[in-house]
Design a protein around this nucleic acid. Structure first.
Lengths: 226, 226
DNA sequence: TCCTCGATCAACAGCACTTTCATGCTTGCA
DNA sequence: TGCAAGCATGAAAGTGCTGTTGATCGAGGA
């Protein structure tokens, strides 16, 4: 996994780089706008981490260019400005995630991993698992060629399960990823039960295999070879 | 999270131990070289804190041994010698971090937590033993490619056995490591018998080799070359 | 405005897992 | 060989987790 790190503060750049390399990424880095642009144009990365405030330019321009050039590159904005505008603008331009400084490095790694996994399923490519077919961009799910109408929540839930197939996912992890920030509430589990039930029901009704398994005491797992 | 603390100064050892336990670590400690070596060899810890200057030996030898034995154990050197040589030597030998005395305990905890998290991310790899395959993060166990559904207890138990493969583990040690603090109020032997039985049964059912051996009067051992 | 549908939430019933218990088998040693 | 201690087994009790049902709430459409 190849990552481009665009960050002008030397100390931060070093620590991020070291940490990422520690956990197995290949890292290249750039410390100002021109060199970042050059590297970003020249090579294809799996993911790019970009600071918004750079010497001689704005990270937002890099985001714009990257997105135009290659839709498969994951883009995470890291920015000191906690400003909502920046966040919205960045995501509008096509960034995939936004991480305000200061952040914990393991958090960055987690998001990076999640992003790369997601990207593998992106594009307009369908994900196929025997009888199950999912087209993320079209929000389409089919079982044996027959369309299954899912609500947005159910769709996102299914996508997250499929993107992490054969892994046990904790309820907490699921809620955090699918419902995002509003996950602070207490009574997570019970409303997840309901959504799970509805999702399973709809899939089974259409004749899908019983792929979503409950792992007692841990969470859920979607099996690829049911 | 299990930590081994190797430190000869009694007062310091006590305060570190107390502090770490307060914030939720399970702590074992050793106060001289031989006993440290014994414990370090005997069990797999999540992390080891080791003082360089010890009675009857050097902490550096412990670092060397630990690193050779188990790449997944985090190692932090704590040393009064601020000498650069020691630091470099220690890190070269495979320690993950270096903390000169005197230090603040919260600082130690912070580094310890960071280290363990990093190690967990790095340790995302599967453990393979012929027909047996374990992916800790996915809570996945496979025998000849076929999934084995284990309960949480069974999984933790198996992981501990595998992490200490080819080593005889006493019942007490197993219970303490897998069940942690609540180990006191349990009827040790009897319920371990049950869990062992269930674990063996599930593995054998899927066609695994008979790896878990009973060592009469001592405990159990999981063989890597069954 | 009412109506419908989906999201959320609480309560309860059922079940899986854990732990204990009673019993019988195996091992090491005299 | 016999006996004590150590170990395995199956069954059953107890605990906590999960699925289900159904009520409430709010958004969007008629």
């Amino acid at each position: 996994m190849k990552v481009l790190l665009i960050e002008d503060e030397q100390e931060l750049r070093r620590s991020i780089r070291a940490f990422l390399q520690d956990v197995g990424f290949l890292v290249e880095s750039a410390n100002d706008f021109p060199s970042a642009m050059e590297k970003a144009e020249q090579y294809a990365y799996d993911a790019v981490l970009v600071d918004i405030t750079l010497p001689k330019g704005s990270g937002l321009d890099i985001v714009r260019m990257l997105r135009k050039q290659n839709p498969n590159t994951g883009i995470i904005i890291i920015s000191a400005k906690g400003s909502l505008d920046d966040k919205i603008l960045g995501l509008d331009l096509g960034a995939d995630d936004y991480l305000p400084k200061p952040f914990h490095l393991p958090e960055l790694v987690a998001r990076l991993r999640a992003l790369i996994r997601r990207k593998q399923f992106a594009g307009n490519q369908a994900i196929e698992l025997d009888e199950l077919r999912i087209v993320p961009d079209d929000k389409l799910v089919e079982v044996n060629g027959q369309r299954v109408d899912l609500t947005v929540m159910q769709f996102d839930l299914l996508l997250f399960l499929v993107a992490n197939k054969d892994r046990v996912l904790s309820r907490t992890a699921i809620v955090e990823h699918v419902w995002g920030e509003m996950a602070d509430r207490l009574d997570h589990d019970h409303f997840l039960y309901s959504h799970m039930k509805n999702l399973r029901k709809k899939l089974l009704e259409k004749g899908s295999k019983d792929r979503i398994q409950t792992v007692y005491g841990l969470g859920y797992r979607l099996s690829s070879h049911a």
